[in-house]
């Protein structure tokens, strides 16, 4: 408090210099990321709050079990682990780009930035595939008609519907099957592995019901709707960060190429872009944790 005591404090805080030995831009970037961490934190904690307010929540291993080109094979977590590794590796290439910047090695910066951009785009591609697969996926669920009768409906994972409820017991599913529409039955028969050469459409309702192999279809009840909203909302928000990170990296790449940083005599901008990119990776650690693992 007194002028006398401040003299004895560490010289870092005495003014005229940064107490952290950092330029303001990096400081702002750090505090911006902290602020952004609260945005993501709020999303994920809201998700947790809603999840805890439900009696049932789908097991992520059941939801995320597809792999491009693998058809209906049950491969839980396989695809998302690839996405995770892509992001980790792109983080590593970013570290190398920043390091090359320290050494004012223009070629190194450009090379590693390019790889980081490739990683980012690959991640976005994976995410696009996953979203597409979930939205267009066709899953048989129990639905209730206005008159109270249960039937089987075919839905995808959307903001307003979730096909990943509890497994329906056999008897309920059987009753619902009998109440289902002709189209639904045709779909289920095909799902049961029976080749359709146009002959199925002519079959009677009962015939079709008989051909459906219920035990292979895993008919479920509808799950909590909030699941889809949070999944698309949060991974979308993360994907938006990845996207903007890629844009930033492309700008950095072009600026390095034009020799802007070379003329400035330092590559500090790359460091800030790097911080942002690592933050994107950091957020993914928690998105991965909250949606895919627990």
């Amino acid at each position: 408090m007194s002028t006398q005591t401040t003299v004895h404090q560490t010289k870092w805080w005495s003014g005229g210099k940064s107490p952290f030995n950092l330029e303001y831009g990096k400081l702002m970037m750090w505090y911006f990321l902290m602020s952004d961490a609260f945005t993501f934190g709020a999303f994920l904690i809201s998700y947790g709050s809603i999840r805890f307010s439900q009696n049932f929540w789908p097991d992520p291993n059941v939801v995320f079990n597809a792999f491009p080109g693998a058809g209906h094979a049950n491969l839980p977590l396989a695809f998302v682990s690839i996405m995770t590794f892509i992001l980790i590796i792109s983080s590593v290439t970013m570290v190398l780009a920043v390091h090359a910047g320290h050494k004012e090695d223009k070629k190194g910066v450009i090379k590693w930035l390019a790889w980081t951009i490739v990683g980012g785009l690959a991640f976005l591609g994976c995410q696009a595939w996953e979203w597409h697969h979930l939205i267009t996926g066709e899953h048989a669920v129990l639905a209730t008609a206005a008159d109270g009768k249960q039937y089987i409906d075919i839905i995808g994972q959307t903001m307003g519907g979730n096909p990943w409820g509890q497994l329906a017991d056999h008897n309920t599913a059987m009753v619902a099957l009998n109440n289902s529409s002709h189209e639904t039955l045709l779909h289920l028969v095909r799902e049961s592995g029976i080749k359709d050469n146009g002959q199925l459409a002519g079959l009677s309702h009962e015939k079709l019901v008989g051909m459906v192999q219920l035990e292979h279809l895993h008919i479920r009840e509808k799950g909590p709707i909030a699941f889809g909203g949070y999944f698309y909302g949060i991974t979308g928000f993360h994907g938006f960060h990845v996207f903007s990170g890629v844009i930033i990296n492309i700008i950095m790449l072009l600026m390095s190429q034009k020799g802007v940083f070379e003329r400035r005599g330092h590559y500090l901008m790359i460091e800030k872009a790097g911080l942002y990119w690592h933050f994107v990776d950091l957020v993914w650690v928690f998105v991965f944790l909250c949606f895919y693992l627990i």
Binding site: S91, V92, M94, V95, G274, L275, H278, F279, D281, L282, V285, F286, F288, L289, L293, I294
Partner: peptide, 17 residues
């Protein structure tokens, strides 16, 4: 898993960042 994720976050922040 939660603890492992925190460990991952620690390494990303302290080494990469």
């Amino acid at each position: 898993v939660c603890i492992l994720s925190l460990a991952k976050a620690f390494y990303i922040v302290s080494v990469f960042m």
